[in-house]
């Protein structure tokens, strides 16, 4: 994959997430947990409001990597969900993804250093993404 020079800066890109996106994602993924759709239930189980699926945020990381690398093969992707992404009833939450390209290993793999934030707060911890160069 050309254009992936070690140290190259990726992004930042910011994506909007609306409640309608969460409904579409629930249908597409099969994850109909009501905490991602129903304010009353989210509050009842002690959450600050309707939150995005953690996997929605991780999917946006996958989207960003695809956009940056021309859909390079991803060999590893993961993160901890360290802060809820609260999605308002009106408008959108904004998730920002940025990163840096690491060195290419002997077996042709490139680790990306990533930072995923909402309003300056990290929402994914220990994000790990490795692609084939």
């Amino acid at each position: 994959m050309s254009g992936l020079t070690a140290g190259a800066v990726l992004g930042p890109v910011t994506y909007d997430v609306t409640r309608a996106d969460l409904v579409a994602y629930a249908h597409a993924s099969g994850d109909h947990n009501p905490i991602h759709q129903d304010e009353e239930i989210a509050l009842a189980v002690g959450l600050p409001g309707v939150i995005a699926h953690g996997m929605y945020t991780l999917a946006l990381v996958g989207r960003a990597i695809g956009e940056w690398t021309g859909d390079a093969e991803v060999v590893e992707l993961g993160a901890k969900f360290v802060a809820p992404v609260v999605v308002p009833a009106e408008g959108a939450a904004q998730i920002t993804v940025e990163g840096t390209v690491g060195e290419t290993s002997q077996d042709g793999l490139v680790a990306l250093t990533l930072l995923i934030t909402v309003g300056g707060t990290k929402v994914l911890g220990a994000p790990k993404a490795t692609i084939r160069a």
Partner: peptide, 25 residues
């Protein structure tokens, strides 16, 4: 396509997190 559309991607590639569909099941 439905999974990609939900997260705003549209390149036609299978999103890397798509296997969540079976792990979630």
């Amino acid at each position: 396509a439905a999974f990609s559309a939900a997260v705003g991607g549209g390149s036609g590639a299978v999103p890397p997190t798509f296997p969540i569909v079976v792990t979630f099941a």
